[in-house]
């Protein structure tokens, strides 16, 4: 049976890259006694996949991984066991069973939202209302916001109006926070820092790579008729233990 796990990543754990997080969770499954399924063969590996890799330096409240298990304890017990096996800075938030025909998380990711903070020690050039006004000029008042995404191999021109689903200026502790909901997934993946860079360039502000703390809030799938739903909402809490099937 398929399980979707949601976790948060904070503090110093932001320096641990995606591949190391996968290794971390593989070991954590063993420590927490999750009855995870293994592939066949001489070097069996756990059946596990992550929804959307998180870049080094970014924190998150909405990371997802899917696993397959033979049997499972309840949601409550599993979350408890997993959290006993965690280090500081990783917390398991959800443990839900997916319908048998559910597609894996990676293939259905459609959007993610982020908060971007200006780090301490870096300048905040504007007041909140000023930021709001600038944001309108940059984004809401235009019909097309073209940016060039450079990769090692190619350059691609993208229209932010198509790929940014929400862009707001929030206020936390008297400082502006940029809120972004962007297209995410394998085909049109938009990194939030690219949007911010474009915004800063539009304002002729110098963009300093290390000036921002990016925080992912959640990751979404698109559901017919309902719009974006958090990946975790596609599963259900497990209220009673489920034993392993006798006939595999």
């Amino acid at each position: 049976m398929k399980i979707r796990i949601k976790f948060a990543k904070s503090g110093v754990m932001k320096f641990i890259g995606h591949l190391d997080m996968m290794r971390y969770f593989q070991k954590a499954m063993r420590r927490a006694d999750i009855d995870i399924k293994y592939s066949e063969g001489f070097s069996p590996h756990q059946i596990m996949s992550f929804a959307a890799p998180l870049g080094v330096g970014i924190t998150s409240d909405g990371e997802y991984l899917d696993i397959e298990v033979n049997s499972t304890k309840t949601t409550e017990a599993s979350i408890k066991n997993l959290n006993l096996a965690m280090v500081d800075g990783v917390e398991v938030l959800e443990y839900r069973q997916l319908p048998t025909d559910a597609k894996n998380a990676m293939s259905i990711v459609a959007a993610a939202d982020y908060k971007i903070y200006i780090k301490e020690g870096y300048d905040n050039p504007y007041s909140i209302p000023e930021w709001q006004e600038k944001l309108n000029h940059f984004f809401y008042d235009r019909s097309e916001v073209l940016v060039t995404k450079k990769t090692k191999k190619s350059e691609k021109v993208m229209d932010l109006k198509q790929l940014v689903y929400d862009f707001q200026i929030l206020e936390e502790a008297n400082r502006p926070v940029f809120y972004l909901k962007v297209c995410t997934g394998s085909t049109d993946n938009l990194k939030p820092e690219l949007v911010l860079l474009a915004f800063y360039e539009f304002l002729s502000l110098s963009y300093e790579e290390f000036a921002f703390q990016i925080h992912r809030v959640d990751v979404y799938a698109k559901k017919e008729g309902e719009g974006f739903v958090p990946l975790g909402d596609l599963g259900n809490d497990i209220l009673t233990e489920i034993p392993a099937h006798q006939d595999k």
Partner: peptide
């Protein structure tokens, strides 16, 4: 953060392991 995000394998320097 600036240093840790510049050097190779910042995990070498942060501790916090299990």
């Amino acid at each position: 953060d600036e240093i840790l995000l510049t050097v190779d394998k910042p995990a070498r320097y942060i501790g916090n392991e299990l």
